[in-house]
Amino acid sequence: MHLPFISDHLPLPLAGEGRGEGKPLKLAFVLFALLVGGCSMSKWTVKPHQRELLADRIMQLDADPQERSAEEHVLANREGAIGGTGTSGGGCGCN
């Protein structure tokens, strides 16, 4: 199975490296590189043949509307906040 990791996108050396001055900047750059690198590696898209994991029920944000409804029913009665239940299980696009 193809598992697209992003570990081969390493950050470039930064000014101040070795003196501890560029650590926050370096960390930000690494995070940015990981994010953009991950995206560019997949060219912003995940191909249909790469969606095997995403199609599994355990990867659905709203796999079971009935269960979600029961959970929300309990918590809406015991918490003063609403929202975040999601309006559509996104991501798979398997059809």
Binding site: S42, G90, C92
Partner: peptide, 8 residues
Amino acid sequence: SLSWTMTP
């Protein structure tokens, strides 16, 4: 809401 399939 907006969903994004970031990686496989």
